[in-house]
Every structure is written in structure tokens, then in C-alpha cells.
Design a protein around this nucleic acid. Structure first.
Lengths: 211, 211
DNA sequence: TAGCTCCATTAACATAGGTTAATGAAACCT
DNA sequence: AGGTTTCATTAACCTATGTTAATGGAGCTA
């Protein structure tokens, strides 16, 4: 996989209205008032990204908060031994950001990579900070969002502590429907905390159980 | 270990001033304004708890946010097989609550148990809600606190994904200085995600390495 | 002090998962 | 179509960790 950089930026004025409607749907749960949405929308830009490219690089400060229109992305880091560990996958309708590093105002502790060609809409951290300063609503949204992230993490901690590899794989299938066909098993194994060989074994065992 | 209930409540008016000073120190990082502190302090109560007793029971709604003056506590849950998994230990100077369940307004997904006789000062969830309604400061503190929790969880996820048992044990020794002597190794193993036998083996190996 | 309980340690054995390497199928390129 | 690359699968072997059970020390209680 090549790590070239052919990302294509799309200015706010050139964003298709349909994309913005799509993004608005991402935030339905957060009940954004119309006037706040107005402010937000005017700060958005678009990004076309190719398979293998990085939206965020481990060690660099996070630059944007993005929303996925299409494609699959993963957040991952390298262990001391140089092995990859995948923290999370994200696809259409999800937020994509090195959020915790932004919160801590520190360089990203993981990279974010496109696993398929993708379309993103994003707001730069700088613009988001402007929004925060003048619109308390966004401070509220920021903290509600981190609660959601925290709940996800708590769930993952629990699974890593109590479930064996096969169970974790079945939970993955459930949490990420369709991903098993779209993503290299190598990445899935690195998310489950097992080797790709073990993942294959598990898949064979499940097949045998079902026949 | 017996699970009797001999908790002893201490009314606000009977709280020693020294305890309150101690609590204030817990919150130093959060820069609580004097008048907010006043409001908060008047809603606090004390609790004496014995070894083995539960502050929070898995499945019950969380009732308070507590601050540890003395003692050691752990949060844990039971797996489907009935095995215990410890999520976190906490001692003097730390906040103690089924916080995520409070946030989600759901029953606690873990229990909190005293591993030593302990002293707590707490505010009931109900009173804290009253505070929230009239004092925006506390909403801010609430979200800053969840950020801290999130960062802890991220660290733990990373460790569970990339570190082997021996490394996790060494990190435990570092993160929780002195705990190895105060807590049953059985609980520590359940925190590290290994059996108590494996923990003993690791300890022996480290001894051998150092001699 | 004797007896009891708790619990850390150790040994012996069993199992899950890692590592390396070989194979073959699918996708991609020219 | 031929060649190349990618990658899931499988086998063989190895290591880490789990399970069970035995041992013995520390601390408590009568």
C-alpha cells in the first residue's frame, strides 16, 4: 500500500448541498439548533482521500474534526516492537478525529488512515475553536461527544478483559456489519489483539461449528 | 470476606473541617471558585465503610459521587462465567463513582467495594443534580472530569492491546505504588487480566531477573 | 499455644494463541 | 493471457497463560 498524498480539498462554497444534509444527519442525536448549524456549516470544507492515505499522522497535532460521507477509516498506532494495533474503525456517518489529543492539546497518539477511497467533510480545529469561543452550544456538544467516546472505550476495555478471541471476533462482526468483507483481515486481527493466523483459525472453527 | 452492611453515615454538620480541606485538595486541578465550593461543601456528607463492603452494587442506580479520605477501593464486575474482573483501583484523594452509569442514567455496570476500612465524603447524585441546575460551573467540571476518565481508558486500552502480562504488571506497580502490599494478589490479577497463578510466576521471573 | 483460615507460591499438565513458512486463490496490471 | 502482487488459509512447532492441586507461611481466634 502506497502512502502518497493525493488528497483533494473542496472549498466551502463548492460543497454539494446533499453532503451537508448528510452531515446534519450524523448529528441528529445532538439536536443542533438551526442558527448554530448555520455557523458550523459555513466553516466546513470537503476532502477526497485515496486508499492508504493518512488523515492524521501519529506525532503530529490533529488539524481537523471530520465527518465521513463514504469510505472506511481506521485509527492505529505502532507498538514498541513496531507492530500495528488498530484502535477503531469508522465508516459513513461517523466522526473522525484524533479527538483525545485535541482535548489534551497534544500531538496525536495514533494515525488515521483511509482503507478505501473516501469522502470527508471537515472543520479545522482552528475554526472549531472560534466556534467554541462564541457559541457555548459547541462546548456542550464537545462534552457530550466525549461521553459517547468514553462509553465506547469502557465497552472495549470490558471485552478485552473478559472475552476470548473468538467472542471478540463475533462482537466485531456484530458491531461492524459488512466490514469483514471490506477490510484486510490483517487490520481486523490488529483490532482484535490477535495475529492474522489466529483470526483465520477462528473463522475455520466457526465454519466447522456451523456445519 | 463478609458482605455485611455496617456503613456509618456522618451528617454535613458533623464533618470535621480537616476532611473538607482534604477534599478541596482533590479538586485543586479543577480551580473551583470560592462561592461554588461553598455550595458544594454544604451538600457533602461523610461515610465510614468497612473492609469488603459495597459503595455501589452492579445493577443498582449509582447514588453518590464520593471522595476518598482513606482506604482502598476497587470497581469490578462479574463475567458471564462468574469470574471477577477489576476495572480500576482508587485510594486517598481520588473520586469514586459509577460515573459512566450516572452519565447514561442507567444502573451501574460494576460494583465498588472497599478493600480496606475507609473514610469517604460524598455528595448524593440528587444533590449534585440540584447543583448542576443552578450553577453552570459544575457542568463544566463534569465534562472535564469525564475527559480525564476517557484519557485513562485510552491508556488502558492501549496497554491491554500491546503489552504482555509482565509489562502490564510493571505498569501497575508504577501506576499504583504501594498497592501490591495492600491488596490481595487475586484482585490485582483480575485487574491485569491474568490468573493469580500467572501473577505469581511473573513475580518470580522478575525476582530471578534481578538477582 | 494450638488450630484455623487465608492466600501466595509452585509444580504438572492442558490449551489458546504466536511464529514461520508454504500454498493457492483473487485481484491487479501490462 | 501472462505475470505479479496481495492476502487468506493451513500446517508444524513453540510459548504464554490457564487450571488444578499441593504446600507452607502469616495472621487471626479460641
Amino acid at each position: 500500500m502506497l502512502y502518497t498524498c493525493n488528497m483533494q480539498k473542496i472549498e466551502n462554497s463548492a460543497l454539494p448541498a446533499a453532503w451537508l444534509t448528510e452531515i446534519q444527519r450524523t448529528f441528529m442525536n445532538y439536536d443542533i439548533p438551526e442558527d448554530e448549524w448555520e455557523q458550523f456549516r459555513n466553516r466546513l470544507k470537503g476532502l477526497k482521500i485515496e486508499r492508504g492515505e493518512f488523515l492524521v499522522q501519529e506525532g503530529s497535532p490533529p488539524e481537523q474534526i471530520a465527518f465521513i460521507l463514504s469510505g472506511i477509516f481506521r485509527a492505529f498506532y505502532l507498538t514498541e516492537k513496531g507492530e500495528e494495533r488498530t484502535i477503531v474503525f469508522r465508516d459513513k456517518g461517523k466522526v473522525l478525529s484524533a479527538y483525545s489529543s485535541y482535548i489534551k492539546d497534544q500531538p496525536a497518539v495514533f494515525s488515521i488512515q483511509a482503507l478505501e477511497p473516501g469522502l470527508l467533510v471537515y472543520i479545522s480545529i482552528e475554526e472549531f475553536e472560534n466556534l467554541l469561543r462564541n457559541h457555548p452550544f459547541w462546548e456542550m456538544l464537545k462534552s457530550r461527544y466525549i461521553m459517547d467516546l468514553f462509553i465506547d472505550k469502557e465497552k472495549r476495555e470490558r471485552s478485552l478483559l473478559s472475552d476470548d478471541a473468538e467472542t471478540r471476533y463475533k462482537i466485531f462482526l456484530n458491531d461492524y456489519p459488512g466490514f469483514i468483507k471490506r477490510i484486510s483481515h490483517y487490520y481486523i486481527a490488529s483490532y482484535l489483539g490477535i495475529s492474522n493466523v489466529t483470526l483465520s483459525r477462528i473463522r475455520r472453527d466457526i465454519k466447522l461449528q456451523n456445519s
